[in-house]
Design a protein around this nucleic acid. Sequence first.
RNA 1: GCUCGGGUGGCGGAACUGGUAUACGCGUUCGACUUAAAAUCGAAUCCCGAAAGGGGUAUGGGUUCGAUUCCCAUCCCGAGCACCA
Length: 864
Amino acid sequence: MREYDHLEIEKKWQSTWVKKKAYFTPNSSKKKKHYVLDMFPYPSGTGLHVGHPKGYIGSDVYARMKRMQGFNVLHPMGYDAFGLPAEQYALEHHIHPRKAVEENIKTFESQLMIIGLSYDWSRKVNTTDPAFYKWTQWMFLKMYGSWYNKKTDKAEPIETLVKKFEKEDSTWKMKSEKEKQDELMKYRIAYEGYSEVNWSPILGTVLANDEIVDTPKGPVSERGGYPVVKKQMRQWFLRTTEYADRLLTGLDKLNWSEHLKEIQRNWIGKSDGSEIEFQIVFDHGQKPGRIPVFTTRPDTLFGATYMVLAPEHPWVTLAVDNNHIGVLDNREEVLRYIAVVKNKTEAERTDDKKEKTGVELKGVKAINPANGEKIPLFVADYVLAHYGTGAIMAVPAHDERDFEFAKKYNLPIKKVIEINFNDEKGLRTIPYGKRSMAPQELILEYDHYEGDGYLIHSGEFTGMPTDKAKKKITEFVGGKIVTKYKMRDAVFARQRYWGEPIPLRHNKDGTITPLRDRELPLKLPEVKSYQPTGTGESPLAAVKSWVKQGLETNTMPGWAGSSWYFLRYMDAHNKKAFADRKAINYWRNVDMYVGGAEHATGHLLYSRFWHMFLKDLDLVVTDEPFQTLKNQGLILGTDNRKMSKRWGNTIDPRDVVRNYGADTLRVYEMFMGPFEGSMPWSTDNIIGSRRFIERVWRLSERVNRKAKQDKKFTATLHKTIRKVSEDIESFAFNTAVSAMMILVNEMDKLDKISKSDFELFLKILSPFAPHMTEELWSNLGHKSLLVQESWPRADKNKMLEEEVTIAVQINGKVRSEAHIVKGLSQDEIVSIARGLPDVEKWIMNREIKKIIYIKDKLLNLVVA
RNA sequence: GCUCGGGUGGCGGAACUGGUAUACGCGUUCGACUUAAAAUCGAAUCCCGAAAGGGGUAUGGGUUCGAUUCCCAUCCCGAGCACCA
């Protein structure tokens, strides 16, 4: 037999598969559909290392089995190529981003094509292709033209809101077009607003949080060390917060790892609490209104001894701004504090090791609505402006942060000791002391400590200080129960060149006109310079023809295209729609999605939001885009560090394929360890996978048409078929490979191998090593393609073995084993076991007190 | 700090619902083949012990006829969140 020449074999079959369109997927079929998707790559300048294809190989093995099992499998690939890295690469190498992307894709494909992945390449997408981003823009316009109706709990066309206003608001018709638009902007799913960005005046560009480093002098840019300040800029947003609850509850139905769901739950950050208003009073008697606070512990309201506002709180701004609403005794001091806070970075502000700072607003007090007590008012940056109401009631006895602050500024600490409840069981007292955050001793040390705390005497609260009591006390002070989320609306604009243009026109009167469908795609203009403008605006603002037309100069963020690309694969070349309705109805959603866990709070959340929005508009048919999700672990360098150019520990898949073959690479990456785990690449260990492949190659010589099936081997074979099928289904590829290795070891003991048995084995090995098995299949005389054969069924009747080995234990220790005929009764086993010399020795004449028998597995005799 | 994972030979890792711990692979040692090497094949490989036997799944305890698996406490590693009131 010929030597195993992986280069020749792999080249041959890869071209044959292309010629015979082996992986072409039709859009209509009587077969059941199955959509297996990889997260499409960002074609970076550095190319792929062996870690990247791990996920692709896993999903490929799975897709291949599903295909052989008779499913119509959609398994496509494409490129996500808009965004900052491509733009920076282009700037550094002085080529146009489009050129850079083209080159990078070429590199990627030279690395991907040789691995033997079964993609239907005819469906390839590229987010930077105008034929693709036309639909990204189209969907954006749908969001611009929609609002979230809380009553129906879904997005609806903005026209229904206009009708509502016309009906309910008599002044609506009198309003100018601009006024109407401004009002509607507050409701649109895609809306224009302002937000703070990191601005580098010298670089003339906006920086992302991770492009900034902190120094003692303040924040500077990572590259060049130029100062960075905060700047308010016009932005586009997506109203993702309207979907917070659906994004949260939808998780329950998804077959994702608990770990990943937990990350998303955390990010959404739901918390139930109360909003309670505190009356504000100036010392000279003026009452400028009430300020609401958000708290999850309204039951500690009686322990609130001061109130804190975030430095950005609108009321603070009003109070210091020429004393509009009253006279602060220390306006200058407060202004200074706000200025200091403003120059801190996010990292500085959230570093919990640093001491809390703040300034009292002198000359003004808040009134605790529970007991009418006047309490001081502070501005402090440990209160976040964007969460809750941007104001808190501080309960130092029951909150660590408040406690720390109170200690520093000598503020009273009052413990809520007990609450008197009056319910059907009569008047009861619930001691509260145990719930205190601050230890009793610490409080007593304190000068301002005012005794035993406050007693709630109202006697009208019922139930425990749980949800019910929280509700009661909230109602008692006229507050309301509310739900808050940590999640914030997504900023949907970048001041960069390399992104989808936002298809809107700004008119001279300040109104906005969305582009009409037939004006799409709005193509990126060809420009000589796509360098930052220096004003913080997008490079598009420097394109005269662009600005003349009043076109929006911001572009979309990198995640726009990736939020829906999987829908385009369903009907990748459609010119009339992002996908034909029939294709959407057939493919529905992704059944198996494979990719890295690092996208937990980015892509995976945005896509879910995007999909829910499309569902509201009836453009897709499922609630969720990705039913099952598997996250592949990293492959580390041989030095146990993350593979990266920086460490010089990357391994190019092309080298591995050249030296060992694609089949070996595939088997090795699947065999290394659990799919979701991270482990180092080993140049030693890969040889094991190569040996396995070669062994199968050599064993094929022993295949004999006339050879009879070996009963024991056939039984192992069918057990292996079952195990491999189950393992691929659950992405336990490492144990699937291991089971096949055991089978091959068994096979090696046979002089002649039955052809039918060997063929069954080739079929289950095919998803892992498609090239070599295809070659052997054709060597056996088949004209058909193995990759299009059907998946074998494990035959239970052939698995039966008459003999089994059971362990015999005395007092829980294995002392012997017995070879018995399957299915014997306990009594029969015991008498056989007693006859064994090893057993007899241990029992001697002692009495058997107890017998435990696990059928066909183990016998345990308990003796005195 | 909080939350979620995890800790098994020299190494990557197996072990179903509590039922023979260390499957499979790498490495190492010895042997066969060879002038020699590579490749291949065979044997051994958790620790102590000549053996009988004993110990052993991060550590200490518990439940059980029996625990890597369940419970309690402690230590360590990884990931996510991080002043979210």
